[in-house]
Computed example of a mutant assay.
Amino acid sequence: MWNFKTPGIPDSEFERTEEVPITKEEVRAIQISKARLCPGFTVYDIGCGSGSITVEAAIQIESSGKIVGIDFDPNAIELTKKNLEKFGIKNATTILGNAKEKIQELDKADAIFIGGTGGDTKDILELAKDKLKPGGRIVIGVILIETLFSVIQVIEKLGFSSIDITQITISKSRKTSTGTMMLARNPVTVISATKN
């Protein structure tokens, strides 16, 4: 279905619904790059939503790796499964449930993505640190200033290194009857760090 290794599958290629969020393609490409994925990695996508990060990460870690998408919304899990099937992804599984409970049942990971967590980002981040292997990467996408503030505090408190904060503001073109205009999307801040 997708014959390229580079991240940034167009959003239009994914199965989508209005009720389930998607990490937009440009933001997703940056988040994937911040995770520094390699073939054979174990990866978690917490708050997987439509599964766009799950799909893209699965491609990066190849068949020797494995990824688990976790979400508390049954609609999100169903949509993630549809997208995994659509893109022919075989190295991914999904878990329906509260990430604060489910993450404790998982093995150690090389990288963890956190997004769409329903306000529990700070708590999930604290649990995720224990699930990361030494040198593992954590990548958190946030849209709320309050969440950004709390995540930065927790990351510093937990002793992560190589902390990077990148705010992404994107405008996409749209054809109108008189020409092409640029429409701004909501800014997303991506925090990434390494476990010592």
Rank of each mutant, 00 (worst) to 15 (best):
E62D: 14
S63N: 07
S63Y: 04
I67R: 04
V68F: 01
G69F: 00
I70N: 09
D71W: 04
F72H: 12
F72M: 13
P74C: 03
A76I: 08
E78D: 11
E78I: 07
E78G: 05
E78F: 07
K81P: 09
K81T: 01
N83H: 02
E85I: 08
F87P: 05
G88D: 08
I89E: 03
I89L: 09
N91T: 00
N91R: 07
T94M: 05
I95P: 06
I95F: 12
G97Q: 00
G97H: 01
A99T: 00
A99V: 00
K100A: 06
Q104P: 15
E105S: 14
E105G: 10
D107H: 10
D107L: 14
K108W: 12
D110N: 10
A111Q: 14
I112P: 05
F113C: 09
I114C: 04
G115M: 03
G118H: 07
G119W: 04
D120G: 14
K122I: 05
D123P: 08
D123M: 15
D123R: 09
E126R: 12
E126G: 11
L127T: 14
K129D: 10
K131F: 03
P134H: 07
G135A: 13
G135Y: 10
G136A: 05
R137W: 11
V139C: 04
V142R: 04
V142S: 09
I143S: 15
L144Y: 03
I145A: 11
I145L: 15
I145V: 13
E146S: 10
T147P: 12
I152A: 13
I155K: 09
K157A: 04
L158D: 03
G159N: 03
F160A: 04
S162E: 15
I163Q: 03
I165G: 03
I165V: 11
T166N: 12
I170H: 05
S171P: 10
R174Q: 13
R174D: 12
